[in-house]
Write a protein that binds this DNA or RNA. Structure first.
Length: 936
RNA sequence: GCUCAGAUGGUGGAACUGGUAGACACGCAGGACUUAAAAUCCUGUGACCUUAAAAGUCGUGCGGGUUCGAUUCCCGCUCUGAGUACCA
């Protein structure tokens, strides 16, 4: 039979499902290998051709690892809580669970059609109570933990209480809120339960706190920093504003240093690591207190006598000529003198008017206002002006900055603009009247007790001095903020917390899961509470209000790889044994867009679970590969426009469009083949052009091309199902790999899929004679056949190990062409070839494997053929001979010679002699025993 | 602005530690088979020059450098894409 891909593929997909061929077992003597894909959010649009790219690569890798004798865990599931299902529910009233279920079914069907070797018995869905029970459980563990800086790990909150009991807060070194109280053990003992809870909340790793959040009014919810891009929500692109709200947060900042250091231990793409480093944003410097000069300003809050600034250049402190606060800084009102009140008010109003975007874009204009107050430079005792300016951000450091015009260009511009002094502090600074010079070279001048020192000594001396005087200390600052954890939405995990006297308490562990209640509408309540406020009678013990916000999208995805290890466990998130066996993910494939979201949160939760002893590894994902984005490739037709600018009924081919005034119209890429428009189908696609005039070039209508995002409105979506229908899953799999390097982003282009399809037909033909009857023989394999085979055995092995899947596909084509030319029908050779190809094109290989007389299903666990280098040794070498680096001649010398002998043989050759024309060469270079260069 | 990645034929791309640049595929052109088409197979296909043929010159974004030899290494620049953005 001819290559009947449809029958073959359906048959084997059914077989794999029925026989659970890819079920991973914990009890195995084989070494484990865990290959993970980033699980998808099941959107209503289904999969387009770009989605499976990473899955195909991970599937090839998994299948290859099975052949190599590994016990492979390769699971799949769904990140099924999320905004689109909820938005759809708001519009239609359909419960998000129903939408989600329907979408998952579509996804599953599409995924099955591609022939993946997933172990579906371990499927997870983050929106299932059996799953989110454990997400809630982890939340409870976080609530019950604090971060002890002495042991540098998270500990149970009881160890903190013990410390409070024993010695109060004095020797507690914890990551906590700034407004923690200092108290003695006796104070602690006299506190009421409520007071104790309130204090403990400042230490818990998940905590409730009034904080400035990104509020998105259009979505009716707060967003985390990584969900906001340029002042707009990542999903939907709605404007986001800053707002103070009581919110659940995760104390991820406690792990900042470990998250940073861990990056050095994992094999991830450098750009992703770099993005995480930037996100964490460690800067080493000092915090310094500038005493506020007593003046007639309004009274300061109790205990406040100084402004604390953070600087990475404490060595420049003698050059400070002003101090700046963020306009939002809490002391601004108190520090503004009556004379300056107007200026300051105007400036703050002006700042508020500027949107977040304007403020970011406008980095050139210098603006600010003088408060009228003065502070004292702690090292020089100098009296310096206190300003406010919007270039200082309230959210970073202390929201206050010291201005050193000679050493920082922005400070320099500010000083020039407002006519503040510019003091040179290093003898190496150049032209500071023209611009700032941030050098650390030279010796200090005009700098009190550090005069004459170099940078390193001065920094150390200042830090010591400031610490002794109690005016400051060396400090490390991180840009990363704690992650806001609550969302005012319905379709997410309920937070397992209730409120008593305004304080949060966990529900009991045995009461998990806290089920998502049914509600009538998926909108906020009339009083502005989140949707969960609509749930009737939803109260803890019929008495206490539950928390009404739900968890963010990243909660469920921050630990899911552990659930796959033991997906059905009802008494643990995964059993100790399963975790001890599978440990961590060996290979993780997914998009780089999760660099500062999912991938950072997952590392955080993993480290936390490790601290509590629940998991084994400090880092969850040993190796990460980012597959490139597949962009859309749009096709256009060009409509001729008449003099009045109206569209006519004429369409002009791409090459001739310059002769007319035209407008480009999107055309469905599925009716364009190699930019050649199928005019008949076009008339059906756009009935208004049914009787249009087509201006052709060379009798053809050629379309224009542009790369855009894949979307329905651009008619450039290619559905994998359509390609599977016409070419089969094996062709699709190989073609997606053939398209180019896995990690490279590229536009999808169906042109060329024929080439891969032809290859598979040719491969099929290898096993048949002219009449399409199966035909192989048991002869002794010829040398040339073995050479072709072993070339591909080695090539595919090397390629897969370095994730170069595209080059393997080319090599398969070469191998099959060679064996076809050799008329190879040898069973041994063809059998090995089937095994080698089976990771890429599993269906056709399974079929042939059975035809070759093997048990159905055994192919997936057959050992990968052993490469024998002996078959690749050639006995005749072709010697390219270069003269001064340019290839001139090709000599065929029949034997592999020693380098010295090659030199002799080459020089003796007639053609070479002619070239040399009696001259003696300066040098003859022989490399790898076969490349010869003659230097004249 | 800063950080990172990249630039190779008409197109997607290959060349693994410097060693015959353009593998493989698409497209295109020509041919075979066919009444014809599809399918299949064969040949050619970087540019230039010249040709009966052979040979020759140029050629991996641009300009330099190291080397017997550079797509590969180094320095400078241009462009494209991604991330980030007053971070003190």
């Amino acid at each position: 039979m001819d290559y009947q891909f449809k029958e073959i593929e359906q048959k084997w997909q059914k077989f794999w499902a029925q026989h659970s061929t890819f079920k991973a077992e914990e009890a195995s003597t084989k070494p484990k290998f865990y290959v993970l894909d980033m699980f998808p959010y099941p959107s209503g649009a289904g999969l387009h051709v770009g989605h499976p790219l990473g899955y195909i690569a991970s599937d090839i890798f998994s299948r290859y690892k099975r052949l190599k004798g590994f016990n492979v865990l390769h699971p799949m599931g769904y990140d099924s809580f999320g905004l689109p299902a909820e938005q759809y529910a708001i519009q239609t009233g359909q419960h998000p669970a129903l939408t989600t279920e329907a979408n998952i079914n579509t996804y599953r069907k599409q995924l099955d059609g591609i022939g993946f070797s997933f172990d579906w018995s371990r499927e997870v869905r983050t929106s299932e109570p059996e799953y989110y029970k454990w997400t809630q459980w982890i939340f409870m563990q976080l609530f019950n933990s604090w971060y002890n800086l002495e042991t540098d790990r998270a500990e149970d909150i009881t160890t903190l209480i013990e410390k409070f009991n024993a010695s109060g807060s004095a020797d507690v070194k914890a990551v906590c809120d700034e407004d923690t109280k200092d108290f003695m053990p006796s104070d602690w003992a006299t506190m009421s339960d409520e007071q104790k809870q309130e204090e403990l909340l400042k230490y818990r790793l998940t905590y409730l706190k009034e904080s400035t959040v990104n509020w998105c009014a259009a979505l009716g919810t707060v967003l985390a920093n990584d969900e906001v891009k340029d002042g707009f929500s990542e999903r939907g692109g709605h404007p986001v504003e800053q707002k103070k709200m009581m919110q659940w947060s995760m104390r991820i900042s406690a792990y900042a240093e470990r998250l940073l250091q861990g990056l050095n231990t994992i094999d991830w793409p450098e750009p992703v690591k770099e993005m995480q480093r930037n996100w964490i944003g460690k800067s080493v410097g000092a915090s310094v207190k500038f005493r506020i000069e007593a003046a007639d300003h309004k009274s300061l809050p109790f205990g406040v006598g100084a402004i604390e600034v953070f600087t990475t250049r404490v060595d420049t402190i003698f050059g400070v000529s002003y101090l700046v606060l963020a306009p939002e800084h809490e002391l601004v009102a108190a520090l503004t003198t009556p004379e300056q009140q107007n200026d300051i008010n105007n400036y703050i109003a002006q700042t508020r008017k500027k949107s977040e975007l304007d403020r970011m874009a406008d980095t050139k204009t210098v603006s600010g206002a003088f408060t009228g107050s003065y502070v004292i430079n702690p090292v020089s005792g100098e009296r310096i002006q206190l300003w406010i300016a919007d270039y200082v951000l309230a959210g970073y450091g202390t929201g206050a900055v010291m201005g050193v015009p000679s050493g920082d260009q922005r400070d320099w511009l500010f000083a020039k603009h407002f006519d503040l002094p510019i003091v040179q502090i290093l003898d190496a600074q150049q032209d500071i009247e023209q611009q700032a010079d941030a050098t650390k070279e030279g010796k200090y001048i005009n700098s009190g007790f550090i005069n004459g020192m170099n940078y390193t000594d001065a920094t150390a001396a200042l830090n010591t001095w400031l610490e002794e005087q109690g005016l400051g200390k060396a400090k490390i600052n991180y840009r990363m903020r704690d992650a806001i954890f609550g969302r005012q939405r319905y379709w997410g995990e309920p937070i397992p917390v209730y409120f008593k006297d305004g304080l949060p308490y966990l529900i009991k562990e045995e009461e998990l899961p806290l089920l998502l209640p049914e509600i009538d509408k998926y909108l906020p309540t009339e009083s502005g509470e989140p949707p969960l406020g609509r749930a009737e009678g939803w109260k803890y013990e019929d008495e206490y209000e539950y928390e009404l916000s739900t968890m963010p999208g990243w909660a469920g995805s921050s630990w899911y790889w552990y659930r796959y290890m033991d997906a059905k466990n009802d008494s643990d998130f995964a059993s100790k044994e399963a975790i001890a066996y599978w440990k961590d993910v060996d290979l993780y494939i997914g998009g780089a867009e999760h660099a500062t979201g999912h991938l950072l949160y997952s590392r955080f939760w993993n480290k936390f679970l490790k601290d509590l002893g629940y998991v084994q590894e400090e880092e969850p994902f040993k190796k990460l590969i980012n597959q490139g984005m597949i962009q859309g490739r749009s096709n256009f037709v060009y409509r001729v426009i008449d003099e009045e600018g109206r569209g006519t009924n004429k369409l002009v081919s791409y090459g001739l469009r310059k002769d007319y005034k035209t407008s480009a119209l999107h055309v469905d890429v599925n009716i364009v083949d190699n930019e050649l428009l199928n005019i008949e189908q076009f008339k059906l696609f756009r009935p208004e052009f049914a009787d249009a005039e087509f201006i052709l070039e060379n009798g053809k209508y050629i379309c224009g091309v542009e790369v855009e995002k894949m979307s329905k409105s651009k008619f450039n979506v290619v559905n994998p199902d359509v390609l599977i229908e016409s070419y089969g899953a094996d062709t699709l799999r190989m073609y997606e790999m053939f398209l180019g390097p896995l990690e490279q982003s590229k536009p999808w282009n169906t042109n060329g899929i024929e080439g891969v399809f032809k290859f598979l037909r040719k491969f099929w033909r290898l096993f048949h004679n002219e009449n399409w009857t199966f035909h192989v023989n048991d002869s002794v394999p010829a040398k040339a056949e073995l050479k072709a085979l072993h070339k591909i055995i080695k090539k595919v092995q090397d390629d897969i190990e370095r994730f170069s899947f595209n080059t393997s596909v080319s090599s398969f084509m070469i191998a099959v062409n060679e064996l076809t030319d050799l008329k190879c029908k040898n069973r041994q050779v063809l059998e090995d070839l089937v095994v080698v190809l089976s990771s890429y094109a599993p269906h056709i290989c399974e079929e042939l494997w059975v035809m070759l007389g093997h048990e159905a299903g055994s192919l997936s666990y057959t050992p990968y053929p052993t490469f024998n280098p002996a078959y690749l040794v050639e006995d005749e070498f072709s010697y390219p001979v270069s003269v001064n680096g340019k290839t001139r001649l090709n000599l065929n010398l029949s034997l592999a010679l020693e380098p010295a002998a090659i030199e002799e043989a080459v020089l003796a050759n007639e053609d070479v002699q002619k070239y040399l024309d009696g001259k003696a060469p300066k040098k003859v270079i022989v490399v790898k025993g076969r490349i010869v260069n003659i230097v004249l």
